[in-house]
Design a protein around this nucleic acid. Structure first.
Length: 349
DNA sequence: GAATCGTGGGT
DNA sequence: TACCCAAGATT
């Protein structure tokens, strides 16, 4: 039996039953694929149900406010996915008359849809022969064939793209794509792969050569940088003061408390002496809430301190992106994890 | 084409 | 603990 045939046979027996696999509706498949980008199935699952319920059709999605989309996405991370999804839904209305496309050449034009996602939708929904290339596929193929070309380079992607195309099943491209990803996720895992009971244990080149744990090969990225965020909780009769994050930085467009970023981790005494603090808050009574929180992102470590400003001086017109929200409206804002975790811990009644 | 974009789970 | 990495895309 060929690699593809064995994989399909394995999948028929061992494939997971996931909600987005019970349909060929490209819209539903698209929803699941965007949510699952760089995201584990267990983490994305509740969001999938949430989005299907909120937006049963692409037309409903296209009519939503971006604010609502981001609020539904809150907590999932990589928030540009949500903004691109909203754009894509509008594009489907404009370009394709509201009918969500399944063809690779059409879906690839949508915002947030790259080669992987277009291949997934086209193969799952329309049976188009397009090999998906995700983290699972890189890992399974690099081991099965013992290919040590780094996967996170342009050259590596080209090499694996060609290999993936050769290895895939021509008869059942959709099932094959799901099979190889499921196999990578549950058997040929990054660490602790189940080699001793693997269906490919007598053929896998990496296993024969004893290099399973060294593959796939990857070039190391830059180290994370540290950033120091000082947040200020300021409340008056209008509600709580919130600030919207700028484009071009982490958490673009999401809401948070007014922020002063510093070059070092400052004590409260040092902070109140900074020009930025005096400029925004003048001489006002401050006290810290909780301890320094370390929040780890993919490319930076954020150390956050939270301070309550007790007797706010007049803050009107201090910053254009600062605005007061009552508790009802605060709840509607899309906030990043650092903020909604703080609110849940310290500000809920 | 390298850097960036979140959060959570596993080892 | 520190590191890896997950159904990637964009700039």
């Amino acid at each position: 039996m060929s690699f593809a045939q064995k994989l399909l046979s394995w999948y028929a027996e061992n494939g997971r039953d996931l909600p987005w696999r019970n349909t060929k509706d490209p819209y539903i498949i698209w929803l699941s694929e965007i949510i699952l980008q760089q995201t584990r199935v267990e983490q994305g699952m509740p969001y999938f149900y949430r989005f299907v319920e909120a937006f049963p059709t692409v037309e409903a999605f296209s009519r939503a406010e971006e604010e609502e989309v981001l609020r539904l996405w809150q907590g999932l991370g990589y928030y540009s996915r949500a903004r691109n999804m909203h754009k894509a839904a509008k594009m489907v209305m404009e370009l394709y008359g509201g009918e969500f496309p399944a063809a690779y050449d059409k879906v690839i034009k949508l915002s947030g849809v790259g080669e992987y996602t277009a291949s997934a939708i086209a193969s799952f929904s329309a049976g188009e022969k397009r090999a998906v290339l995700d983290g699972n596929v890189f890992r399974v193929l690099s081991r099965y064939l013992a290919i040590d070309v780094p996967i996170n380079t342009t050259h590596g992607k080209k090499v694996f793209s060609e290999v993936a195309e050769e290895m895939m099943s021509a008869e059942q491209p959709g099932l094959y794509n799901q099979a190889i990803m499921d196999f990578g996720a549950t058997v040929c895992k990054p660490r602790g792969p189940l080699c001793s009971s693997c269906i490919f244990r007598y053929e896998c080149a990496a296993l024969q050569q004893g290099v399973v744990s060294e593959l796939p090969k990857k070039i190391k990225g830059k180290a994370s940088r540290n950033r120091y965020f000082n947040y200020f909780i300021i409340e008056n009769e209008n509600g709580i003061l919130m600030s919207q994050r700028p484009e071009g930085d982490v958490w673009a467009n999401l809401f948070e408390f007014p922020l002063i970023e510093t070059e070092q981790l400052l004590t409260q005494e040092e902070l109140v002496e900074t020009d930025a603090f005096k400029q925004h808050f003048g001489p006002s009574e401050v006290h810290q809430i909780g301890k320094t929180v370390k929040h780890v992102l993919s490319h930076q470590n954020i150390f956050a301190n939270f301070y309550r400003i007790i007797k706010p001086v007049d803050l009107e017109q201090k910053k254009a992106n600062w605005c007061y929200y009552n508790s009802e409206n605060l709840d509607k804002l899309a906030k990043h994890k650092l903020i909604f975790t703080f609110i849940d811990k310290y500000m809920l009644n």
